[in-house]
Design a protein around this nucleic acid. Structure first.
Length: 106
DNA sequence: CGTATGACGAGCC
DNA sequence: AGGCTCGCCATAC
């Protein structure tokens, strides 16, 4: 059912939207969902391409790097993302998300 | 169509 | 533990 409009990017956004509040997913995990086990970087590329307007409709802050680390993004520090997650009740452990507690499959 | 890019990940030192 | 290198993938040019 993947039409021309249903690109990899679109799939990524849809997957990210499926992440429930208070939980997080890693880039690699999302890549697996999309059927591309080693496409973590591609997922990152998709989120990077997210326009400010679009980012308002995609819970990008629920996507973290392996080990619960906050990936370094261009033009913005990790503070914003940490704040958003914290607001959803996500706990941090030495600056990293506690995946055991907030991961998709706890 | 070949090269470069990047919000990654795993391995190695 | 912390930092560097290499591999992978989907776009951009």
């Amino acid at each position: 059912m993947a039409g021309a409009a249903d690109t990899f990017f679109t799939s990524v956004y849809r997957a990210v939207r499926a992440i429930p509040p208070g939980r997080v997913a890693t880039y690699g995990q999302l890549a697996r969902w999309l059927g591309v086990p080693r496409g973590a970087r591609a997922v990152g590329w998709a989120l990077r391409a997210l326009s400010p307007r679009r980012s308002a409709t995609v819970p990008w802050h629920r996507v973290v790097a392996a080990g619960g680390r906050i990936a370094v993004r261009p033009g913005a520090g990790p503070d914003l993302q940490r704040r958003k997650l914290r607001k959803e009740g996500v706990r941090f452990r030495r600056g990293r998300v506690d995946l055991a507690r907030h991961g998709l499959q706890p």
